[in-house]
């Protein structure tokens, strides 16, 4: 068991845990943060996406011992921010949500993408979301949601 300190949604937290335990399990079990979901457990589907130091990562692939001192943001944190609210609202307006299981991961991927490309092209959005699988929407409405969020970000 190791003592591991990192920042979670802006607050410093310390946990005692085996270092190889998956960040996904730590978030869901120790912090009751269930926005990140397990869809595959092998980094293929993106349902467990969180931000690590501002970039989207698969939390099922991250051993918690490797994130000492890192800044982790989950959807529970992002949804309180202006950017998070804007993406969520754009998803609601664009019909981007169907069964919803992939949606939290999509929102996190969108946040990471928009931080890097504030005004992405459709091709950049598709590339940015290419690690997040969805079986309901066929993606078009999600892509539109991200583009809408980027426009609202500029006050358009």
């Amino acid at each position: 068991m190791d003592s591991i300190t990192f920042r979670l949604n802006g607050t410093e937290v310390t946990i005692t845990s085996p270092g190889t335990r998956r960040l996904l399990d730590v978030l869901r079990e120790d912090f009751s943060m269930t926005a990140a979901k397990e869809g595959c457990g092998e980094g293929e589907c993106g349902a467990c996406s969180v931000l690590k130091d501002g970039r989207v990562v698969n939390s099922c692939m991250v051993p918690v011992g490797s994130i000492q001192g890192c800044e982790i943001v989950t959807l529970e944190g992002l949804r309180e921010s202006e950017q998070g609210k804007r993406i969520i609202d754009a998803f609601v307006q664009s019909g981007s949500v169907q069964c919803g299981f992939c949606t939290p991961g999509m929102v996190m991927a969108a946040a990471s993408l928009l931080a890097e490309h504030p005004r992405p092209s459709e091709a950049e959005v598709r590339e940015g979301l290419s690690g997040n699988l969805c079986r309901c929407t066929g993606y078009d409405a999600i892509v539109r949601g991200v583009i809408l969020a980027s426009r609202e970000g500029e006050g358009l």
Binding site: E38, G43, M61, P63
Partner: peptide, 25 residues
């Protein structure tokens, strides 16, 4: 990065990855 090791020794929800040895981050 661990993206190979964490797949090869993949854990199911609520369990630890089945790594055969300790890891050096």
């Amino acid at each position: 990065g661990g993206t190979d090791l964490m797949v090869r020794f993949r854990a199911q929800a609520g369990t630890l990855p089945k790594l055969p040895h300790p890891v050096l981050f």
